[in-house]
Amino acid sequence: MQEKEQYLPQILFLKEGERNSPFSCQRNQVALKIMNLSSEHCNISDWLRLEATVKASVYMVTFPFVTFITIIIITIVSQNSKLRKEVRYILLCHHLMCISSYCGLGVVFQGMRALLANSPVVLCWVVFGVQLSFGEGILFTLALMAVNTYLAICWPLTSVSFVESVKYKILAGTWIIIVFKNVCLFIIEGTKSTSVAVLRSEPLCPVTLNSIPSRAIAMVFLLLLLSIILISYFLIYQEGRRAGHFNRSNIKARKTVLIHLLQISLHVIPTLIFIGLGKMCGKFFSALNLVLFGVFAFAQCFNPLIYGLWNRELRSRLYYWMCCQFWCGHTMNDRGPV
């Protein structure tokens, strides 16, 4: 439609002599061909349904995988009193629950769009808003995990008592910020629609938060969390070099930092590009959108493995848990199998 509007003035506002000239007729025919091509290849309804079908299929694969690993890690942590008291494992479990919930709500929301469920607009907004909140919770918990690691390494004597006293307050404050921001944005976007429009049923389940102010706020929010993560890892690296943790003999420490930064970039870069572009119609933008979503889904699948099972203590306890659970038929406590 934008391309049509671009060429319509060139056709309608020509002088009479120019309209009848051979060059003008040829130019009009080219403009009309472009209009027809744009309307043929830019059917937003078909594109959105195809995108929703692909995303729903990917979420149906990622959701069971992530949920299975999340349940295993939470079970291991909950059965050990030492692990339950450590803040990093509390944040890890919280992070994994955010990923699992995000993927599960992705199946619901994209399934509603792919199946043309004809759901009320307000229901679509609620499902999308909750999924968006869990998606922001993924990055927020990554930032908290990075800050907690920095405090544990650079301030080992004072960080334990401080973090233990404020850990649940910080988690509660995090969710208050996320929910408050999204509710305010939805209220601002919702004021542009009437009550009849909000309550009517739509087959493609439209969403809001695609305006320029909403995308700008989302990018600022994302860049703020990314800055916290990068600053924390930079300070961790500086302290590690000073203390000798990142020397040539300690390859695992350097590899851990690099893997974490790569994993975070797979979360952040596709999201920044997607927010910056917004919803644009066309084959190129639809293909780019699906590629970015594939990269983001790949990062979600491997987050439980990298931040959970990359941990040596969790990995060793997982081996004991699997042996006792599946082969011996026992359960685990703090001292081992019972």
Results as ranks from 00 to 15, higher is better:
93 C>Y: 00
180 F>Q: 08
9 P>H: 07
252 K>Y: 11
297 A>H: 08
78 S>K: 08
301 C>D: 11
121 V>D: 04
51 E>S: 13
31 A>L: 09
267 H>K: 06
259 I>F: 09
126 V>H: 06
102 Y>F: 14
74 I>C: 14
303 N>P: 03
166 V>P: 01
300 Q>H: 05
78 S>A: 05
10 Q>G: 12
157 L>G: 04
154 C>W: 05
308 G>V: 00
113 R>D: 02
89 Y>F: 12
35 M>Q: 08
41 H>T: 11
110 Q>F: 11
330 H>G: 07
293 F>R: 07
245 H>G: 00
169 K>I: 05
162 F>R: 06
146 A>R: 06
274 F>S: 07
213 P>T: 12
78 S>I: 04
224 L>S: 10
136 E>L: 05
296 F>M: 08
338 V>G: 15
2 Q>K: 12
45 S>R: 07
217 I>T: 05
88 R>D: 12
249 S>T: 14
67 T>F: 12
288 L>S: 13
236 I>T: 04
13 F>D: 03
189 E>G: 13
40 E>Y: 14
169 K>W: 07
58 V>I: 11
6 Q>F: 14
195 S>W: 10
332 M>H: 05
173 G>I: 02
312 R>L: 08
97 M>G: 04
193 S>W: 11
143 A>G: 04
210 N>R: 10
105 L>D: 00
268 V>D: 02
172 A>S: 12
274 F>L: 15
45 S>E: 14
4 K>W: 14
189 E>K: 03
31 A>R: 06
220 V>D: 11
154 C>S: 05
305 L>G: 00
167 K>V: 04
93 C>M: 01
149 T>E: 13
42 C>Q: 03
38 S>K: 06
162 F>E: 02
196 V>P: 01
217 I>D: 02
129 G>S: 07
132 L>D: 03
156 P>W: 13
128 F>E: 07
275 I>K: 08
6 Q>G: 06
230 L>V: 11
261 L>K: 01
292 L>H: 00
298 F>E: 00
131 Q>V: 04
106 G>M: 10
206 P>Y: 12
59 Y>S: 14
122 V>M: 12
61 V>K: 14
255 K>M: 13
147 V>A: 03
46 D>S: 13
205 C>D: 01
61 V>T: 12
285 F>R: 03
255 K>R: 13
96 L>R: 00
279 K>C: 11
104 G>M: 05
326 F>C: 02
334 D>M: 11
83 L>K: 01
274 F>K: 09
63 F>W: 12
44 I>E: 10
219 M>T: 13
318 L>N: 03
277 L>I: 13
86 E>Y: 07
233 Y>I: 11
7 Y>W: 09
169 K>F: 09
45 S>D: 13
312 R>A: 11
227 S>C: 14
236 I>W: 06
309 L>H: 00
164 E>V: 06
45 S>T: 10
109 F>M: 05
172 A>G: 05
220 V>A: 15
329 G>D: 02
272 L>E: 11
91 L>E: 00
270 P>K: 03
243 A>S: 06
286 S>R: 13
38 S>M: 09
1 M>Q: 10
137 G>C: 00
259 I>G: 02
149 T>D: 13
28 N>T: 15
118 N>R: 03
304 P>A: 04
311 N>R: 01
144 L>A: 09
44 I>H: 11
241 R>V: 15
58 V>H: 11
295 V>G: 08
160 V>R: 12
241 R>H: 15
118 N>S: 03
229 I>F: 05
338 V>I: 15
